[in-house]
């Protein structure tokens, strides 16, 4: 995209401004694709590098467009691109806030967990309606994976 537009755009900033349309959408795709897709795979979930790259490119586009719009000095242009840049930065900020702050907001290990020597008995309803008990697993290892739910 960038490559094909670049040669003409040095003479015509208007053309280069079309890049602006990719800025905010790229940031949005970068944010949302994490939750819809990339979070499913540990390699893109644990550190969201692919999403950060997408968001970074989107922000660069939005920033460049704003800078060019200011140079063209056409009324309304820089305001419009400034808004796009602001929105892009806002979404990028929210994503970073989630990744580097919110997802760390979980309680400390409780004394109950710390002192737990053996699993308490349990009987819970499985996804298929059957009842699953701790004693069903005697004689085998059992991995209990607690998770937040509400997918």
């Amino acid at each position: 995209m960038l490559m094909t537009v670049a040669p003409e755009s040095s003479e015509n900033p208007q053309r280069k401004l079309r890049l602006a349309w990719f800025g905010l959408p790229l940031v949005l795709v970068g944010c949302l694709s994490y939750f819809l897709f990339f979070a499913l795979f540990p390699i893109t979930r644990d550190f969201p590098w692919l999403n950060l790259i997408l968001i970074g490119i989107g922000l660069t586009f939005a920033w460049r467009s704003f800078a060019i719009a200011r140079e063209t000095q056409r009324r309304g242009h820089s305001v419009w691109h400034g808004l796009l840049l602001t929105a892009s930065a806002l979404f990028a900020g929210l994503f970073l806030f989630y990744v580097f702050y919110i997802s760390y907001q979980i309680p400390q290990e409780t004394a109950t967990t710390k002192n737990l020597a053996a699993s308490p008995e349990f009987a819970l309803t499985a996804h298929d309606g059957s009842t699953v008990r701790l004693e069903d697993f005697r004689g085998r290892y059992l991995i209990l994976s607690f998770y937040r739910g509400h997918w």
Binding site: I106, A117, L134, F146, R148, G149
Partner: peptide
């Protein structure tokens, strides 16, 4: 999560007798 109480993420391995 959205005002509800949920489980914090945790993984336990229990041995054949149910010990942690």
């Amino acid at each position: 999560l959205m005002g509800k109480d949920i489980a914090r993420p945790a993984v336990f391995i229990l041995d054949k007798e149910g010990r942690v």
